[in-house]
Design a protein around this nucleic acid. Sequence first.
DNA 1: AGTGCATATGCTGTCAATGGAAAATGAAAG
DNA 2: CTTTCATTTTCCATTGACAGCATATGCACT
Lengths: 121, 121
Amino acid sequence: MEPIQVYKCFCDVQRLRILNLLKDGPLCVCHLVEILGADQVKICKQLRYMKELGMLEDARVAQWKVYRLANATDPLLEENLKCLQDCYSEVITFKEDTQKRSAIALRMQKENAACAQAINS
Amino acid sequence: MEPIQVYKCFCDVQRLRILNLLKDGPLCVCHLVEILGADQVKICKQLRYMKELGMLEDARVAQWKVYRLANATDPLLEENLKCLQDCYSEVITFKEDTQKRSAIALRMQKENAACAQAINS
DNA sequence: AGTGCATATGCTGTCAATGGAAAATGAAAG
DNA sequence: CTTTCATTTTCCATTGACAGCATATGCACT
């Protein structure tokens, strides 16, 4: 992966937040939409962007589409997510996102939601 | 410095090469032009871009203008330059640039060039 | 086939970034 | 004060990224 392309990818807070979330495991689009509180179409486009870049992979589970980080993790990606967490937590809502993610996982366990398998597969 | 702005700055190989060079100490525009083998006006614009971003500082020495990294070094900047050197040395000509820089410094010592003080001030 | 939910695509206007050519500034030297 | 060298600015055309909206696809259930 060309470093310049990676940096272009990093130029959007939403993309950074998505990458940070996926770092802890796969998620389906509806979860990302809920956590980021953003337009579905927009999220979709970001996901496609990062998939074409080779950063993400996707898989279908029934109606849902599950995205995960691509296998070969880019050193730039890891370093930067760490650095952002350490130094820019007021600027990017990584912590809040991760908390929301836990809340969703919990809720789905209780409700035994159909979509739950997406997270745990 | 907003991380997004920093990443936008990183989206250009020439800017990365400039930052890498300045990490080892200040340089004047003419040296950067020589090392990067690029259009002088273009370099100028990049320098201005990074100065307005707060990443660089400049000072005049006679006819020459000397650029250096701003005092407060951004953790993102340091981390990324290191990471790029480690993992992408085939993609970005950091090593060659640094060698050229040494060659210039040496040559100027011999010639006792007027511009030399710029590097060493 | 027809409905509903989840996800994706296409199109269009807008705005920022980039490059090239020409002109302008600032400092030193004749 | 004119020339020269180093650097910067301005203007203009082009490109690329992005948001918004409408529309389309894919899958499951009936």
